[in-house]
Design a protein around this nucleic acid. Structure first.
Length: 988
RNA sequence: GGUCGAUUAGCUCAGUGGUAGAGCACUGCAUUGACAUUGCAGGGGUCACUAGUUCGAACCUAGUAUCGACCACCA
């Protein structure tokens, strides 16, 4: 006999270990079996499990366990990602926190990287062990890490091949620069956020004191403003970049500035005697209707300006160093400005390198932080009187003329931040390595268009196309130390040798040539992009590669469609002969808290999956939630809320309950608002199954014996195997279609409502009766149906089902190795189904009436059936015992007529008569019947109206019409019987 | 600005053309026999709004309102 209840803590880890030791997670490598592969989205090596991982891996595990049971050769490929920036950040923080003066630069590259490896060894397994707690059936013996030697070989080969094809190149480009990490990052790693900003308006005086007539017109061409100006008005949100301006641009159609196009104007900042003059040019980019219509062009510090500068061959002067400080290198400002002046006047040639070396930051600003420099520039320009002035709006209503103040608009501006560092990203002109993503994207787009890879839900393909069709060159070099070193070596004169190894590079260069390897490492996503084939041994032609590429389904959240899915598509197709890396991409929801807010430590609303599995006291819960708040002052409120919401913390719900909850909530295309109540509900569900099994054991159910539907005798047994068949078919279909919520609810409903609430109750009189044959059949069916339920539930609740399997019979193998129920339609006996439907309805109706008329729960009621057909009579005889037991009856017999004053209800053709006149009040009973008649009447009117509509009868499908006719007949018959009963009562 | 999504019971959500559903919460009743982590019975919804298509609309179409996500962006 199994324990009183299931204790997850006592079993889960033990069961997991047994599976692992028995090799249950390894692919069968059975060549006759269909291969089935899922690549885990490799978690960050230093990460720990959060709710998103829990959902993501629960779904993968459901798929893998399901397909494994269906006989497929399953590899769920596990591993971890070295996560360049994220990991380097963690270790750098540790260095800082350890109090020593060491940072990575003072340590040096080798020592630092060694330190990171130490940290990886120390904490690297955490998340994988947490995945095991969840029950993940990964092929752990094949666990990979993106920095493993064999994966490194793959990375180098991909790089070299792409380089040799010209699809990877090095170039000086404007890139997103993270001044905190001092590295370039890709567009995707930049978060644009709206912040409060300012727009300053400055006057750029025309060279030599020239003037022009500035004319503004309204839409009809009437002149609204006309004045002589000796300047052009420029607006900017980043005044410090003025120092690097190369031109002022206006739209070619802008008549206001036509007189001065081609002339020079002065950047109104810096030492007066070395003011730089820049040309006024035309370009399509400026919007004449925005601001003054004139834009300063700072090619080295703005992406739009960069394009304009490239088109117009405008020099792009870099102003900042890698920390985001104003440059302090190079010649003096006076010297640099003079050269720049000659360039601007076309008197001196320039090239990229020459411009890059020039430092046009005036001496007083050199070495300032970029935001300090901004303040200084504004102050200096304003002091000199070159700010555009307006009347102070504060004084508008006064009689005296309002004083003038500099025009500074407060406005929301979009500012780029590093997604990891949180600092403002600086566009910087630097030498970087790029992948020609546009070329690689083409076949990747086509693969989705042609359906070789499908997104589920399919609307995500729009997102994919949208990004892929507008893809920019992918900056893959990072000025970090933790990652794959770029496989490029430079000769003494900058010659480039790209090769998979240093030795091969040396061979290319020739003996004795001194080579220096590129200092940079690759973007983390470069190696993640190879994951589907690098983990299978590529470039070797391994069995794993042949068998498990392409994979079946990629399971991931939408937020890495661009980062990861798109890159895997591009690189997989490129290097695996045009074959896509996976057939389906299942995009699942983001897990949020109960109120729909994104979980984050900074908000104090994180639910740790392990806390739900193991349980956690309220004090610990409070401590965890208030530990890393963005606004620490909110801690008391959070504490109060948590204590109110979870007075005792979380129970140890176990992994099964968590998994089932996530599956049940994993609907297509909607976020999950996770509620702990629901987890408790599904924990109860496990308990229910557990107790049903206990019941079976107490009644000597036979486990391990299979059942043939043809051999069954009792309708109730025929019925339950039919219901089981319907359930397993629904579950299979739903999982195949990624409708995990439907799959979960089908098996939940079967187990609780059908099996426990009905079948177990229906079986009690048989199991306790003296018909040995019926008893034996029922014991066999009960045991077998439960076993099949374990199987059907196993993908969702692997632990409790495995334990039940193990404890109900002597087993030679694991539940997880069983074959998925291959039940077919022969299990569905329609006659038995109809018969049991009648039994269930009869019991329910009687119970309902009892409750309505307040018959005491314990009272046994005499009931008779009037107007029953022969078939119903047979059913009464066959099921009398169980109906009497479940509806608490004193007798249940056929009768010709009902005694006066009895209470009636209707099932099918017969009237059910509760002979309890003395227990009830005639008036109340009439009222009850009237209420029911009212309901019936409404429905009947609706049906009659519909069926009376010729168009409906003519156009609706025949079966729909027939169905509704049938229903109308049934309702009318019921109505007639009830109204007769009512009239009888009334006439008393 | 572009794209996608949401709006259904008190709460969290299923439901893609044919009798409105689940879990939790709520109400009443029931505690020695699988299970109170329970059972039985019940209350509760103009399916955001408007107009269309259709015999028939929560569902399809168009529009409106509110909320949200992603992408892009005017210096």
């Amino acid at each position: 006999m199994i324990d009183q209840r299931f204790d997850p803590k006592a079993h889960e880890q033990r069961v997991y270990q047994r599976w692992e030791e028995a090799g249950c997670f390894r692919p069968s490598m059975d060549t006759s079996a269909e291969p089935y592969a899922i690549m885990i989205p490799p978690p960050n090596v230093t990460g720990s499990l959060h709710m998103g991982h829990a959902l993501n891996n629960t779904i993968q595990d459901i798929l893998c366990r399901f397909e494994r049971m269906r006989g497929k050769n399953v590899r769920w490929q596990p591993g971890m990602d070295h996560a360049g920036i994220a990991t380097q950040m963690v270790v750098e923080r540790q260095l800082a926190a350890s109090g020593g003066n060491q940072d990575r630069r003072s340590m040096g590259r080798d020592a630092f990287v060694e330190k990171v490896w130490e940290w990886k060894e120390q904490s690297g397994g955490t998340i994988l062990n947490q995945l095991k707690r969840l029950g993940a059936s990964c092929d752990w013996e094949n666990t990979k890490f993106t920095l493993d030697d064999d994966l490194n070989v793959a990375v180098n080969k991909v790089f070299v091949d792409l380089y040799n094809e010209g699809l990877i190149y090095r170039a000086k480009r404007l890139v997103n620069w993270d001044p905190h990490f001092q590295t370039a990052i890709s567009n995707l790693e930049v978060e644009n956020k709206e912040v409060d900003g300012h727009m300053w308006h400055f006057k750029y005086p025309l060279a030599g004191g020239q003037t022009y007539t500035y004319v503004e017109k309204d839409a009809d061409g009437n002149i609204t403003l006309q004045e002589e100006r000796d300047y052009i008005s420029i607006a900017t949100t980043r005044p410090e970049t003025m120092l690097g301006d190369g031109a002022v641009a206006v739209h070619p159609s802008d008549e206001r500035y036509a007189p001065i196009v081609g002339k020079l104007c002065e950047i109104p900042v810096g030492p007066k005697q070395h003011r730089r003059l820049i040309p006024i040019i035309t370009d399509e980019y400026p919007d004449p209707d925005f601001g003054s219509g004139a834009v300063k062009i700072t090619g080295a510090h703005d992406f739009n300006d960069y394009q304009v500068a490239k088109r117009g061959n405008i020099p792009m002067y870099s102003l900042m160093d890698e920390k985001g400080f104003m440059r302090a290198d190079g010649k003096t400002y006076a010297e640099e400005a003079e050269i720049a002046q000659r360039i601007a006047e076309g008197k001196e040639d320039f090239d990229e390198a020459k411009i890059a070396a020039m430092n046009l930051v005036p001496d007083p600003y050199r070495g300032l932080d970029r935001f300090e420099a901004r303040k200084a520039v504004i102050a200096d320009i304003s002091a000199e009187g070159n700010a555009v002035m307006v009347a102070d709006p504060k004084h508008q209503d006064e009689e005296t003329e309002a004083p003038l103040i500099p025009l500074v608009e407060n406005k929301k501006i979009m500012q780029p931040f590093g997604d990891r560092s949180g600092v403002v990203i600086e566009p910087m002109l630097t030498d970087q390595w790029f992948v020609d993503a546009e070329t690689l994207a083409k076949p990747a787009i086509e693969a989705v268009r042609s359906g070789k890879t499908k997104f589920v839900p399919e609307n995500w393909d729009r997102t994919y196309y949208n990004w892929m069709e507008n893809i920019e060159p992918w900056c893959i070099s990072r000025q970090l130390w933790w990652g794959h070193r770029i496989p490029v070596w430079y000769g003494p004169n900058g010659e480039v040798f790209c090769a998979p190894t240093a030795a091969e590079a040396q061979a290319l260069a020739g003996d004795g040539v001194r080579l220096q390897q590129d200092e940079d490492v690759l973007d983390t996503w470069f190696s993640s992009g190879l994951w589907p084939f690098s983990t299978q041994g590529w470039p070797e032609e391994t069995d794993g590669l042949k068998t498990f590429y392409p994979g079946a389904t990629l399971v991931t959240a939408f937020d890495i469609i661009f980062f990861w899915v798109a890159r895997m598509m591009m690189l997989g197709i490129k290097f695996m002969d045009g074959e896509v890396p996976f057939k389906d991409v299942y995009i699942h929801a983001i897990v949020r808290d109960e109120t729909g807010k994104k979980m984050s430590k900074a908000e104090g609303n994180v639910i740790d999956p392990i806390d739900l599995i193991d349980g956690v006291g309220v004090d610990t819960l409070v401590a965890k939630r208030t530990a890393n708040l963005r606004q620490p002052e909110k801690a008391p409120k959070i504490e109060k809320d948590v204590r109110k919401r979870y007075p005792k913390g979380f129970d140890a719900y176990g992994a099964d309950a968590l998994r089932f909850t996530l599956a049940a909530m994993a609907t297509k295309g909607r976020d999950i608002n996770l509620s702990v109540d629901r987890i408790a509900g599904y924990r109860n569900f496990g308990t229910k199954l557990w107790n049903a099994t206990r019941f079976a054991q107490m009644n000597e159910a036979k486990f391990g014996v299979s059942v043939e539907p043809q051999s069954l005798d009792l309708p109730v047994n025929k019925w339950i195997v039919g219901e089981l068949y319907k359930c397993t078919a629904a579950v299979s279909e739903a999982i195949e279609d990624y409708r995990f919520n439907d799959a979960a609810s089908a098996v939940y409903h079967f187990t609780w409502d059908v099996l426990c609430d009905w079948y177990l109750e229906l079986s009690k009189p048989i199991l306790n009766g003296d018909d040995v044959q019926a008893q034996t059949e029922t014991q066999t069916v009960l045991g077998w149906v439960l076993e099949q339920t374990f199987v059907a539930l196993h993908p969702f609740m692997p632990f409790i089902t495995e334990v039940l399997w193990d404890q109900t019979a002597k087993r030679s193998d694991f539940l997880m190795q069983q074959t998925w129920p291959g039940l077919n339609a022969s299990f569905a006996d329609e006659l038995a189904a109809e018969e049991l439907d009648w039994v269930l309805k009869t019991i329910s109706q009687i119970r309902s009436v009892r409750s309505d008329v307040n018959v005491p729960a314990g009272a046994k009621v005499p009931v008779s059936l009037v107007g029953a057909t022969e078939e119903t009579g047979r059913r009464v005889a066959a099921h009398r015992d169980v109906i009497m037991r479940m509806a608490r009856l004193e007798k249940f017999d056929l009768a010709d007529a009902a005694p006066a004053g009895s209470v009636k209800t209707v099932v099918g053709e017969a009237t059910i008569v509760l002979e309890i006149a003395d227990l009830i009040d005639a008036g109340e009973e009439i009222a009850r019947l009237d209420k029911q008649l009212g309901k019936l009447g409404g429905e009947i009117t609706g049906l009659e109206k519909r069926l009376g509509n010729d168009a409906f009868v003519a156009k609706a499908p025949a079966e729909v019409v027939a169905e509704q006719r049938e229903r109308l007949t049934e309702l009318k018959s019921t109505e007639a019987k009830l109204s007769q009963a009512r009239d009888q009562l009334a006439s008393l």
